[in-house]
Write a protein that binds this DNA or RNA. Structure first.
Lengths: 115, 115
DNA sequence: CGGCTAGTTAGGCATCTGTCGAAACAGAGC
DNA sequence: GCTCTGTTTCGACAGATGCCTAACTAGCCG
């Protein structure tokens, strides 16, 4: 698992705030996948652990052993959802797997909502 | 339906970017409901219609008759999800029902993601 | 190689979600 | 009151989602 796959489509409605332009179907589908990935409390907590990590990345073992009380496989499942949504990316280094946020994706979503 | 109900919990994790503080369970649950509401292409398109309306609000009839090809009841269902997530609010005036965005909720989510 | 640890994948199950058509409800106007 | 139009609620269904246990893969060390 040297490079984990990240889904990125071309129809990424990029920088236009939602308040200015109605979304077409392709852009809406694309964005919905990212928002849906954020639409789970466990994933949101996992993501906040990743984004708030001091080194900019975090070991899966630090998530599993933390205060998020779901099983290891479930953590892995949620990491996959976040990864396939393009919100995080992961890399194996030796024994451990490290995840870090994809800043562009997060700020893009933020820009879409904010003013 | 003079005033449609809006779910608002007290544990609304407000203005702290996700990148700075790990979320606790209550805040994550609360935010996840809002993100989940955004996690559907149809809802995202409906919301973009509402937020991009020239008058700041839009009649349901303008959504139903538009290019979003789902049935009336389905539109109404999605409007309810958005409303109960606190992202929009609606009001009946005579025959028609008008919806407008709840700017604070949208900007709060945006601030959570963006820099 | 064999055993150990970290993490992912697979299978199964209960629950949630998106969609529809039909029915019920709310106003406007006759 | 009756009817027409716009909107929501109801009941049902297929498909997706979240969780678990069990099995599997990847790397490390003796």
């Amino acid at each position: 698992m040297a490079k984990l796959p990240v889904i990125q489509t071309s129809a990424m409605a990029c920088c236009t705030p939602i308040a200015q332009t109605p979304l077409d179907t392709a852009a809406a589908t694309d964005l919905a996948r990212m928002f849906k990935a954020l639409g789970d409390p466990v994933r949101l907590r996992i993501l906040s652990r990743i984004t708030s990590a001091p080194d900019g990345e975090i070991c899966v073992c630090d998530i599993t052993g933390g205060d998020i009380d779901v099983s290891g496989p479930t953590i892995s499942h949620h990491l996959r959802v976040l990864r396939e949504a393009g919100l995080i990316e992961g890399e194996r280094r030796g024994t451990w797997v490290y995840y870090r946020p994809v800043a562009e994706s997060l700020t893009r979503l933020g820009a879409l909502l904010g003013t």
